[in-house]
Amino acid sequence: MAIFIETVLSGLMAGVMYALVALGFVLIFKASGIFNFAQGVMCLFAALTFAGIMEKTSVPWPIAFVLTVAVMVGVAWAVERFVLRHLVNQEPIILFMATIGLAYVLEGVGDIIWGSDVKVINIGLPSGAVDVLLDNFDIYLDKLEVFAALIAAVLVGFLAVFFQKTRIGRALRAVADDHQAALSVGISLQTIWVIVWSVAGFVALVAGIMWGAKSGVQFSLSLIALKALPVLILGGFTSIPGAIVGGLIIGVGEKLAEIYVGPMVGGAIENWFAYMLALAFLLFRPQGLFGEKIIERV
């Protein structure tokens, strides 16, 4: 029983880590209808900038954090100014392809500025097992992941309030529904896009720091986007709660599969199992668990 509990708890915590990455995708898709292929690279770029600033300037981490947020706002402005502004009302596939290009640019710029070496994030984040659980109940849980879960909860709360209760949040949703209509009622598309990409950059920074604390900040960090995709498929591309619940389901599902089914089929099944699980959900809810149902007139 302890194994099962441990697996489920670890799955939930891993799921939160996936959800952190998925949140960035949801934000941009929700506000602009763009599937941002560069979100994984944004996590890398943000974490790389954060770790790089600390390494090169030896400033305390809160200052490095603020500076990195400023850099991500700068990235958001540049994306709007040089990419999105020229692609208003284009097909979604065009915007998607633009984000593929953006991913390459960010990766290359990150490499040129900060180099390709592994950077250690040493800001006093908790690590190791939760001692109380391990010593008293023989259940292993990673302190870092528990901390990440708390951070994710705070982030989701902040985003929920931002989207539901603020003028900018409502404007973001209006832009997501229809660019032209939003423009016609006086919403500045440019400003909204800069804001939403900035918020997504902030989320990418948090996700990048959490993942970077696990493995060191390195270029494979951009591949964590692969972990977010099944979460998005399952939770829906437009729902913040969907990203969280999707992350938890994927996290628990893949861990249980790896531990209980994996040994029977040679192991290493968690990656593809996550996609299988997401596809199974798609059969019944094509828009994802929490996604908005799309009704189009033909």
């Binding site: 697996t7 990673d142 960090l221 861990k255 990656n271």
Partner: peptide, 21 residues
Amino acid sequence: EQLPVDHPGQEQKATWLQIRR
């Protein structure tokens, strides 16, 4: 005991839970 880890290996929780057990 053989425990494969898929590329790139960023997430290995299940592998190490098995090792723990």
